[in-house]
Simulated assay, not measured.
Amino acid sequence: MTGASRQVGRRSGRRVAGGVLLVLATVVTFWQVDLRRHAEERFLAVARPVPAGAVIGGADVRVVRVANPSGLALVGADRREQVVGRTAAVPLAAGSLVVSSQVGPPAWPPVGQAVIAVPVKAGRAPAGLAAGARVVVLVAPAAGADQASAAPAGRTAAGARRAVATVVSAAGADQAGGQVVTLLLAADQAEGVASAAGDVSLVQLGPGQ
Score class of each variant (00 low, 15 high):
134 R>M: 07
161 R>I: 04
54 A>S: 10
52 A>S: 08
189 Q>G: 09
72 L>P: 04
198 G>L: 07
28 V>Q: 11
75 V>P: 11
103 V>Y: 00
138 L>W: 04
153 A>N: 09
149 S>N: 13
19 G>Q: 06
196 A>Q: 07
186 A>C: 00
103 V>Q: 09
169 S>Y: 08
179 Q>K: 06
4 A>L: 14
152 P>W: 03
95 G>K: 01
122 A>I: 06
47 A>P: 02
62 R>Q: 12
112 G>R: 12
53 G>D: 05
28 V>I: 15
163 A>H: 05
4 A>G: 04
133 A>F: 03
74 L>G: 07
178 G>C: 03
122 A>F: 13
60 D>F: 10
9 G>K: 11
160 A>W: 02
102 Q>I: 03
168 V>Q: 06
140 A>I: 00
7 Q>T: 10
75 V>Q: 05
131 A>V: 01
91 P>F: 09
122 A>Y: 13
180 V>P: 00
189 Q>W: 02
135 V>Q: 06
94 A>P: 02
76 G>W: 01
48 R>H: 10
95 G>A: 11
94 A>D: 05
199 D>Y: 01
186 A>M: 01
7 Q>A: 14
94 A>Y: 09
99 V>R: 15
11 R>C: 04
165 A>Q: 09
62 R>H: 04
91 P>Q: 08
5 S>K: 12
188 D>W: 02
168 V>F: 00
130 A>L: 07
126 P>Y: 06
68 N>F: 08
98 V>F: 10
163 A>M: 03
25 A>P: 10
203 V>R: 05
164 V>L: 07
158 A>C: 04
192 G>W: 04
5 S>V: 12
153 A>P: 08
